[in-house]
């Protein structure tokens, strides 16, 4: 998918989104007696998004819009990889605790970023992945009193 196809797709999706805002806005109520109701603002925003996105779609279809280069396939895979790793580790936090889950995420992301790791790099990555979550846990839970989720091992 090229960046221009994406531009058209997003403009199209935004038109649908704006339509949904208009619909929900009407549902929430435009006026409440003599004052604007909960739905007026969403309605106005919905109309604005529909109209402006229609213009954007028109510009994209007629090639009036010029966009700088998109991302390379490799970049997209890496970014998507980092997002997936983050989401997975987030889902593991209630099971493992935040410290362990973050530790795991750090190692995987580090290896994702440097696909040909040297021994020195691995040592450093292991060190920061171990230290950062522990320092964070001490800082947030110990000093700042944030109830950081703990795993079965108590941290």
């Amino acid at each position: 998918m090229t960046i221009h196809t994406l531009d058209k797709a997003v403009a199209g999706l935004l038109i649908l989104f704006g339509g949904w805002l208009i619909w929900t806005g009407l549902d929430y109520g435009i006026m409440q007696g003599t004052t604007p109701g909960a739905g007026l603002f969403p309605l106005i925003m919905g109309i604005a998004i529909v109209v402006l996105s229609a213009i954007n779609l028109f510009r994209a279809v007629t090639n009036l819009e010029t966009l700088s280069a998109g991302m390379s396939r490799r970049e997209i895979i890496k970014a998507a990889g980092v997002v997936v790793v983050l989401i997975v580790s987030l889902l593991l936090i209630p099971v493992l605790g935040m410290t362990l889950a973050t530790l795991g995420a750090m190692v995987v992301i580090g290896l994702l970023l440097r696909t040909d790791p040297s021994r020195a790099f691995l040592v450093r990555l292991a060190a920061v992945s171990l230290l950062t979550p522990i320092i964070c846990w001490w800082l947030f839970d110990g000093l700042l009193g944030v109830p950081v989720p703990v795993g079965p091992l108590g941290f």
Binding site: L86, M98, M106, V107, G110, L113, L125, V128, F140
Partner: peptide
């Protein structure tokens, strides 16, 4: 190197936003 810096930053973001 970002391969070390970014994992650290991401970990701090996770803790910070949770807080």
């Amino acid at each position: 190197s970002t391969a070390l810096l970014y994992p650290i930053v991401i970990a701090i973001v996770v803790f910070g936003v949770y807080a």
